[in-house]
Design a protein around this nucleic acid. Sequence first.
DNA 1: CAGATTTGACCTAG
DNA 2: CTAGGTCAAATCTG
Length: 379
Amino acid sequence: MHVLAAHPAAAPPLAFLAAAGGVLDHHRYSTKELTPPTTTTMDSNALRQIEEGFRLARELMEELPAAQNEPAYLADRCHGIAQAYVAAIRMLHPPANPPTHFGGSSQHDRVIPQLDLLRPFLSAPSAPSSSSTAFPHNLGRHQLLAADPSSFVVNASPVVAGTREGGERMTIMVPTQATAGNADQPPDDGYTWRKYGQKDILGSRYPRSYYRCTHKNYYGCEAKKKMQRLDDDPFTYEVTYCGNHTCLTSTTPLLTLPAAGPATAASTAANMLSNSPTGGSAAVLAAASQDLFMAAAAEHSAPALSTAIQLGISWMPSALVGSSAGEGSSAQVNVPAASGRDTAEYPVMDLADAMFNSTSSGGSSMDAIFPAHHDRRDS
DNA sequence: CAGATTTGACCTAG
DNA sequence: CTAGGTCAAATCTG
């Protein structure tokens, strides 16, 4: 089964939109190209579990304003939601039926412990209080999800700074993850980057690293970022994003789903949970959880899908929006002006990461998948 | 072996 | 000329 994914050029990841204030344009994120659920024969119990998860998430959304200062309560509620989905995962993808993709054995036992990683987000004191906070729209979702929202600082609004190329540039401060083991890396931002240079910067203790989108050669994606540790805080990276992603990477290229089984997309998302290559990463968990919403919705019905979009991308990031709901909701996302691929239908499934980030068996899959764009010029 | 990273050389705006 | 940004060959890695 193929999910063809016409894709907007620079549309922000869904979770990011929600994180930035729950802004979601349902027209932009049309569901028309979803895989029809009619061909699946999902276990009705699993469906009920998914619906239960949606219901709990909806309740939590409604309670959020009142309960925002009750981290323990929120954590419990989230745990309940998570358990509903975990139950669905188990039904859809029992251990006795190991995945054929993402190359691994079932490790569902890891799911629940990973979910606990969400707790720090829920108990985070508050979101950045600046009412002028603006997020880079080309920022991948994982970064927002991975970073402690209390320390996630957008250092500058979109600027046309004195860079050589001009254009949009946004700088954010991203804390390293103390629990991530490898403190040399800031949280994954959901896109795949290729380092193309490193430079010692005058007056800076740490070198600056230059990255471009891994898929530049396939999509002509001009997105770039620079990362540099702060002199006075080595545990914080200053990340400057330049340009928008025009690739299909973070938010769904076309792909081949696992061929068999009643639970294709959902189980794929489940596999992301189970077989995350960066195992234990809250960012990956969050992404996978989001994708689970999307996947479940894709296999459900259109109305449920709408709900899934609203809930699936909202309930977790809302924790990141934080207690200053009023101010937080004022954060605006500068969705790029619609043009060309910007207006394409936005697929809800987000399995690209699974392909590009979660499997090493792809080999020359890019050639097979994107032959028309194969204009690579460098190694 | 393909793709990612490293790193010195090169380019260019100021 | 200098510093920041990019290129590309060498090297590493899975």
